[in-house]
């Protein structure tokens, strides 16, 4: 009830005070809005409105700042911190991070190894940067792949009744498959061909990304299908049908924008799952080769000696969880910003 009366009250006042409240307060725009060209400039100002609303969400802004920081850290970091992450400095193994000195004057610390070294003398800071590149790339690409697959299958199943049974049973089938044995078989079958085609690292990257992508789209597909089924019965879809809008534009214009929220949520969850699945695969020896660091692998390699060297678990763990959290908040803020009902407030 309040939802209905509230916009009613806001829409009531005459246009003159309402226009500057909505857009930027410059005179030219008011004149234009009142004149003839008002609808033409909607696309640019729409994105400005989205940005204004996005900035309202503190968590999303902090998340975005952190994501930019961590992305710069892994991309530009190795140019500044020019230490080879694979370099074995066996004399300086098990060096503690520099801050350990604050409470333990006896600790083995070096200024040239700010985050210490591992049991083979590899620099942890350099490893975090190199590992972050791989983890982020795997996470984003696998998430996007799963998202596109899941949305496509969900939309097709929800919109076209004839495909529904077939696609949803296929989704059930994929959900019922045990993930790890499937990945194992995929690795065994395709590893050598892909290595030959793309080189050892790129080959394994393509394999891991595809494997994670095609085994994690099912939940997105189910959520999207459910929402499409509900939206399909809404009157604005009927109205579009009475106009004669063909199916493909019906989907892109009316259905997809309205299932954006659940897609966004499963995207942020998907990123986390992809990074963690990659770590699990590397841990089982199915992922990247052992001298090729990723956040997940640094984490798993250090678990055995976690009590003596907690920093080797904390730093990669923090990287993973903060990245996921940042993306989660950005998704949250973006979802609010893209919803005109919330943006209007």
């Amino acid at each position: 009830m309040t939802d209905r009366t509230d916009p009613h009250e806001r829409a009531e006042p005459p246009p003159s005070p309402a226009v500057p409240a909505g857009g930027a307060p410059d005179g030219g725009e008011i004149a234009e809005a009142a004149g003839s060209a008002a609808p033409g400039q909607s696309s640019t100002s729409l994105w400005r409105d989205v940005w204004v609303q996005f900035r309202e969400h503190k968590g999303a802004v902090i998340g975005l700042a952190f994501l930019i920081f961590i992305t710069l850290f892994v991309i530009a970091g190795p140019w500044i911190w020019q230490v080879d992450p694979a370099d074995l400095d066996i004399r300086n193994k098990d060096v503690r991070p520099i801050y350990t000195w604050l409470w333990d004057r006896e600790a083995d610390v070096m200024w040239s190894r700010p985050l210490g070294t591992d049991n083979l003398g590899r620099d942890i800071l350099a490893n975090l940067m190199q590992g972050g590149r791989v983890s982020m790339a795997v996470g984003w690409v696998a998430m996007l792949l799963a998202l596109i697959l899941g949305t496509l299958i969900g939309v097709l199943a929800g919109y076209f009744r004839a495909l529904d049974g077939l696609l949803m049973r296929f989704t059930d089938l994929m959900l019922a498959l045990p993930l790890l044995p499937l990945l194992l078989v995929m690795m065994l079958l395709f590893r050598d061909q892909l290595r030959a085609a793309f080189g050892p690292e790129q080959g394994i990257f393509v394999l891991i990304v595809t494997a994670i992508g095609i085994t994690s789209w099912m939940h997105t597909a189910r959520i999207v299908r459910g929402d499409i089924l509900a939206l399909k019965e809404r009157e604005y879809v009927l109205a579009a049908r009475s106009i004669g809008t063909p199916s493909r534009r019906m989907i892109t214009r009316h259905l997809l924008p309205n299932v954006l929220s659940p897609i966004m949520v499963s995207a942020t969850l998907g990123l986390a799952t992809a990074i963690i699945t990659e770590s699990a695969l590397s841990f089982l020896g199915l992922g990247f080769p052992s001298d090729y660091p990723t956040w997940g692998k640094i984490l798993f390699d250090s678990v055995e000696r976690m009590e003596r060297f907690p920093e080797r678990v904390i730093w990669p763990g923090l990287c993973i969880s903060l990245t996921v959290l940042a993306v989660n908040y950005i998704g949250d803020g973006l979802r609010d910003a893209l919803d005109p009902r919330i943006r209007g407030r």
Binding site: P7, H8, R10, A11, G23, A33, S36, A37, P39
Partner: peptide
Amino acid sequence: DEKVLELMDAVGLNRAFARRFPHAFS
């Protein structure tokens, strides 16, 4: 755009409302 504004006139909607979203109306 011109046709849209003419239609808005015909049904008695203020032209300045063209960029608003449905939730903002009674």
